[in-house]
Simulated assay, not measured.
Amino acid sequence: MLRDATEEDVNLMLSWRNQEINRMASRTHHVISADEHAHWWAAVRVDPARRVLIYLRDGLPCGVVTFFDLRFDAPRTGSWGFYLDADALAERGETLPAWIDVMRAAVDHAFDVLNLDRLDGEVLAHNTAVRQMNRRFRFVEGTGRAEVHDGREITVIPISLDRAARRRR
């Protein structure tokens, strides 16, 4: 289940984003400071092209789903990303089920709530597990491009999922 993020979620979101596994799967590896996070939160709260949602598993907050670059003219498009409370989910042995569940919830939200025609995103080329999961959800990869972040070169691959290609339950 997804719900809107609130002020009460800010510290949880920051702690999850700063977990090493989440930093290593992101463009930037540095630890996000409280000030940097507060600046981000202040900006997303007032941006009509962004949504920040909390993923709940068995009633517990366990992750963040972000939608951004939302365009509500035709075609309706948007980009997305997510990260989980990887440490707590691993302790409970729930990482894979939560990962599948949050992706399903995010795709459902994109097409059923935001009514998008296409959902876009990005994946790091070296993140083969995420790339495989994206294919399971029928995302299509584009051509990767090299970028430099935090002093390191990475290859970023765009992904997209059209409404018509979406896997239905």
Rank of each mutant, 00 (worst) to 15 (best):
L2I: 11
E7S: 11
E8T: 14
D9R: 06
V10P: 01
V10K: 06
N11W: 05
E20L: 15
E20W: 15
E20R: 15
I21A: 06
I21W: 05
A25E: 10
S26I: 09
V31F: 08
V31Y: 06
E36Y: 11
H37D: 01
A38S: 15
H39N: 02
H39C: 02
W40T: 13
V44D: 03
R45T: 04
A49W: 01
R50E: 02
R50G: 00
P61E: 09
P61C: 12
V64W: 07
T66E: 14
D73K: 14
P75G: 14
R76V: 01
L84A: 07
A90D: 15
L96V: 14
W99C: 12
W99G: 13
V107C: 10
V107I: 13
A110R: 09
D112L: 14
V113I: 11
L114C: 11
L116A: 06
L116Q: 05
R118N: 04
V123H: 00
H126K: 06
N127D: 09
N127S: 04
Q132R: 09
R136D: 11
R136E: 15
F137L: 09
F137P: 10
F137V: 10
R138I: 07
G142W: 00
G144M: 06
A146G: 01
E147C: 05
V148L: 08
D150F: 07
G151S: 09
I154T: 11
I157K: 00
P158R: 00
I159N: 00
I159Y: 00
